[in-house]
Design a protein around this nucleic acid. Structure first.
Lengths: 224, 224, 224, 224
DNA sequence: CATGAATGAGAGTTCATTCAT
DNA sequence: AATGAATGAACTCTCATTCAT
């Protein structure tokens, strides 16, 4: 149930091509763009880098996209599903809540790691372009809401601190998790900081989350 | 003691001017840059906008700064002290820990609000320029360390969950607070989202922080 | 007999298609081109606008035409007959000369009005492309010659000022009429100028023409 | 008094430079633009041709002008005074009206000849860009009005056909003169047509103008 | 110290035309 | 005969930075 978050709202500005050949070209442009953006960041990527990587001419780009923005949107769109880290669903909600949270957090971290460069990209452009700021917020909101529902359910079952507003608490805890992931997989990775202790981080995050909701721990509490 | 965080590491690339006139010009450039950057963001600000706002010529800029980056550094430097939200120091560390945390968080939020545009700017450039990514991390680390010391002290006094690694816990909780502030004062403010409930947010954040550390609450715990 | 003027000299670069389907496609391209050119002018019309309007693909265009220029030629060719304002022929040359001139001028104005957008187009391209400059001049020359013959005939019948060179006079008076029509139906119409008095304009033009040739007027001259 | 026509309405989009050097550069850009436009026409002239001719970089262009349109406006502006063919004023209005008209027409033709390439340019762009269409019409209107005043004055002195509306007559006769000049100096000159008889053209134009207004001729009328 | 004109590499974008299917 | 994807040369325009005055 924990885990920070995203969802959507997209806009297909140019209709998709009809022929298989067109589909292939468009698709190779999107992959090329993903590679180039991940390599150089959004700002430093030139359209020509993308078309070269896709082995087509500059003009071909405009058969499928109207702008650099639009192909970025397509890249993010294509990666959306994996970024919604499907790990979550696999967790049995009737298990021990602590175990569920631990599993969710781990799934989130793993999905983040898989898409770390894309997340860095999204972070970059959302601080540049309002359209992508909106996109990021929409994706985040979906997870905030999901976690909020989970918190509310725990409260109703008498397991979580009922003094907490579920939505506000979810916002705070989701922010905590997603920011930890960002710092760990993007900032520290790029900055050459000795990669921090992944397992320790995950364990701490989960323990804080559990404590914050005042969930009863499965183990004998006084023992620790 | 809570609150996320920053510190420093600056580089005076050009020595400061000697004459009063020079000092005045340099200073007006920095103020102008701050205004322009806050208004339009780093990328969309042209040097000529800054020099115009400072009522001097384009050439004069290079008497004081070697590049656009450098004047941004100067702007952030100048604002550093207030961005380190001085509220924290005023809190008496021997008071009730919960009250201390509440006061610290409030001080952090207030400082964030005062410098919201600058924080947005820092967020923007730290996702563009490695130099500023470093700067932001250094500032953040100082606060993480400060909060870590505070957590450790609470653990030593038998008040906080000793199963938590103080540094990792501080990273997580500091991230939570700073991200909440960013979302509230930057994202929501710009996005036209009906500004969320400030007091409720602050209260939730503090309660989560207190819970997360398993601090005993001042009030009768079972009552809530 | 008066009225300005055009004639021709065309070049069928691609032989016409044989199959009914081919004829249909070619024809729909020409109509589409006429519509598009009239709407947006020659320069702002893209081939793709034309093919879309004709409901065919970009490639099909080159089955029938070798270039944008060539389809424009086809459009102007197709409209040629009406642009040669057939009204003229209906006038009985043995009638009162003043009445003949009045009728000719009216016929010219009416034909111009019917084809105003095409005339604007021809004006535009004749100032861009030498080929079309030639086309326009050839069409104009035909009318100049026709009017010159008419003037000469009036001179021979002792009705017109014999001091005038028939060809030069025809050039001048034909220019006057065609330019009045252009200003009235193209410039004023587009410019939002309150459309001037059509009848008054026609009457003035005719009176000037008659005066210029020193034709005796049907009514009592001294009376006016 | 006869002669077709122009006047104005301009817009200085970029403020003029302050330093002599700047003034020199701007001025050399305008001259270069005039040369290039006259040589290649508006559409075929590239900004880089102009800056090369002015011996400056592409960027410098934008210090003084925001677009190709704008420098064309400056070119036409600079040439305005001569294009308003100052010859007219030298004619003594109390002389023989026929002589006055002859002199005016000659002055107009000479001014047109001096600026033939520019007139061709104006003709071209006024059929492309509404802004220049407006400019041309404003210039033309000034002359139409001037000639209309002259016609009215002749009517009041009992010399000209009072059945004519002065403004409409002026429009027609001004159109005639300007179109003759255009055909002679632009179309025929470019088209390689053996340049028609200049003196004969002028004489015919004047005679038609005089006849059209029914002015009494100085010489014995029946004699010709 | 101040000025402001000059620079120039480089980006995004357009669209008539070609060509494989 | 028709399709529509692919091409690529060519163009305009930007702006941080330099430099002569």
């Amino acid at each position: 149930m924990p885990a920070a978050s995203e969802s959507d709202g997209e806009l297909p500005d140019r209709e998709l091509p009809i022929t298989p050949r067109g589909l292939r070209t468009r698709s190779s442009l999107v992959s090329a763009a993903r590679r180039v953006f991940e390599e150089s960041g959004y700002l430093d990527s030139r359209l020509i880098d993308i078309t070269r990587a896709a082995r087509c001419s500059a003009g071909t780009f405009y058969t499928y996209f109207t702008s650099k923005e639009e192909i970025l949107a397509a890249v993010l769109e294509q990666a959306r599903d994996d970024m919604l880290h499907p790990g979550t669903e696999r967790v049995d909600p009737h298990e021990n809540p602590v175990a569920v949270i631990a599993a969710s957090n781990r799934a989130y971290f793993e999905a983040y790691q898989r898409n770390a460069k894309l997340m860095a990209l999204l972070e970059q452009v959302s601080n540049i372009d309002p359209e992508f700021r909106r996109l990021r917020r929409e994706r985040a909101d979906a997870f905030v809401r999901r976690n909020a529902r989970s918190i509310e359910s725990l409260q109703n079952r008498g397991l979580a601190d009922t003094a907490l507003d579920p939505l506000l608490a979810s916002r705070a805890l989701s922010s905590m998790i997603s920011r930890l992931a960002f710092n760990h997989f993007v900032v520290d990775a790029a900055g050459g900081r000795s990669a921090a202790d992944y397992e320790g981080l995950l364990e701490t995050a989960t323990r804080l989350w559990v404590n914050a909701l005042r969930l009863p721990r499965g183990d004998d509490e006084s023992a620790r």
